[in-house]
Nucleic acid binder design. Structure first.
Lengths: 338, 338
DNA sequence: TGACATAGTCGAAACGTTTAGAATAGGCTG
DNA sequence: CAGCCTATTCTAAACGTTTCGACTATGTCA
């Protein structure tokens, strides 16, 4: 900038004024300065600017697992709308690892991001302390944190799986296996609550044996399903609490020599773009990923521009049950009855 | 830092010395300073540090489409290894849009990233000019850029699809449809070249009618496949040049009332974690995503720490043909013969 | 015509670090 | 004891911006 100022024989203050349009500048000087900028190929240094202004126009985005297509989609739309608003996105993912998560949030805060969008891996005290003391605009997505009261956009998880379970119950299933996500997450807890609620509404007992933990990961879900299917009274249906796990569930069903939906019905949280083209066509709960991403981005943008209300806003969206062919009426699944 | 210095009654230089261990400090002062840091809860300001040092310990990662599971996986491992090395990742994705890409690369350079990892959307002149003049450590992944000579890690695309085509030819298929990615990308060109090479090796003519462009996207691939299947001499097999497009291909096959592999065989670039559990079990070319990510990250890390050789390193990895059940011998697909 | 507002420009301080080089205090050598 | 070396500490400049307040020239109003 100093070079530009010299080349145009003006002060740096004036150069700054034309670049930012922050003060009136005579047409003559403006012309000289703009020309000098062209000639020199000057680009203003965003770091120096950030130092002075105390803002980086960057938001930190931390999600538990970017490999999960749900998060991938959400990240993509967040990145898109933030970019259009002139913000850069610093991305972290920790593969559902809480310790890694703590490190990463530090990394982000350390880099002086202006705000944070987080889908936390777990309800970790350290994390909560850090984001509490960072005092940054923060929006939680997908998963809430106990005792942390910020903007958030989440799904009505409880209702969604209650509906799905109700649907399976309606097909006559009485023993519905449930592959749960980690109860360290609000989604893990809420989804399980939905399952319980549906059972209760149908006057059916909640059986611990029928729920196993897959921690939102394929491998763990595979093991969990193997156990479930090996038990004496095999369930006639299985609900998977997310997309990654349903792959594990299907693999276990295959490996144990059963067929879906002939032998066991399956439904899952999270939809797939290919769900109605590969067999069995999975019955799923579709999340409005586009809306989730847009809303989250908008919340942080509003907060950053200071036009949010004082109290945090909590958006809860509804899932949609996509009934396809992976669940069938109990009367048609003879082997499960035997 | 000034506060810490005051609290410990020393100069900021000394505080800096203990924080960075950049100069010897007596145990006494060190103790006082460390205590003051604790008490005050001081964190050094990375922006100011970047300004002085001219380095941000951040690398820009721009991929054409993060929604594509291949890129997602690669991004995840890159993020992981860079994080472990103390680097933050600034992510951009542009949905294969070249103009957006130009904007984004500017955004990244503007933010003073220390290096760039790019999977370009297209062979765009503006992009090339920008990264040429930015003069930053850069590594290209997946796709090369004509005339840009930097570190890179790519697949041997040509060979991989040549092998796959050879395999289909071996099953007796003579009319193999090819759904191509954009020829603006090196992968688009190389993969098509592999298809042609296999044809040539088998003394078969290259027929323009059999290749359609899906631009690496599901929707376009769907349309392309519809055309292909509507033609008078319908192909008995189709190869899709990536994962997103094969979904479109399968949808088209379904919508036109055909079955895979009974009526038409299908193979695709890029593997899926669920490929051998949902029907039809797709025959694919699996890319070593883990290795690609690791190598790319290592290349940029080496370059950043100045321990790379002067000349750019170009790594080319091999794909692996995963033969499953979506292709069958031509003699068994009667309808295609008719 | 003098007081005063206004537009345009500039000098210099500030943002929070790092670091070169100066300063200081001992200790050692001859 | 002078001279010198070493270890430790400090002062101050620099990184590249933004912006406050000062200054000048010009125009306006009573």
């Amino acid at each position: 900038m100093l070079d530009v100022a010299k080349a145009a024989s003006v002060s740096v203050a004036t150069v700054s004024a034309v670049i930012n349009g922050s003060a009136p500048v005579s047409p003559e000087l403006r012309g000289r300065i703009e020309e000098a900028i062209q000639v020199i190929g000057y680009k203003r240094n965003a770091i120096a600017r950030s130092l002075k202004l105390g803002t980086t126009r960057t938001v930190g985005l931390m999600v538990a697992d970017i490999t999960n297509p749900f998060f991938t989609d959400v990240v993509a739309v967040i990145q898109d709308v933030l970019h259009r608003a002139g913000y850069a996105v610093m991305l972290c993912c920790n593969d559902e690892d809480v310790d890694m998560q703590d490190e990463q949030i530090e990394l982000l805060i350390d880099r002086s991001v202006d705000g944070l969008i987080i889908a936390p891996a777990g309800d970790d005290e350290t994390l909560k302390r850090i984001i509490g003391s960072a005092n940054l605009p923060t929006v939680l997505i997908d998963r809430l944190l106990d005792g942390i009261d910020t903007d958030a956009v989440v799904l009505d998880n409880r209702r969604a799986v209650q509906d799905a379970t109700h649907y399976m119950l309606g097909l006559g299933h009485r023993r519905i296996g449930y592959i749960s996500g980690s109860l360290e997450t609000s989604t893990g807890r809420e989804r399980l609550a939905g399952y319980k609620a549906a059972l209760e509404a149908a006057n059916l007992p909640y059986e611990e044996d029928l729920v196993r933990f897959g921690n939102f990961r394929e491998k763990d879900a595979y093991k969990a399903t193997m156990q479930l299917l090996a038990s004496t009274e095999r369930p006639s249906a299985i609900f998977s609490a997310n997309n990654l796990m349903v792959i594990g569930v299907m693999k276990a069903i295959r490996d144990i020599g059963l067929k879906c939906p002939e032998d066991v019905s399956v439904a899952s949280f999270d939809d797939f773009p290919w769900a109605d083209v590969f067999q069995p066509h999975l019955t799923t709960i579709a999340q409005p990923v586009q809306a989730i991403g847009e809303q989250a981005a908008q919340l942080i943008l509003d907060r950053l521009s200071g036009k949010s209300p004082e109290i945090p806003r909590r958006l809860v969206l509804q899932g949609r049950l996509m009934i396809r062919e992976s669940c069938r009426p109990i009367s048609l699944t003879p082997r499960a009855i035997a």
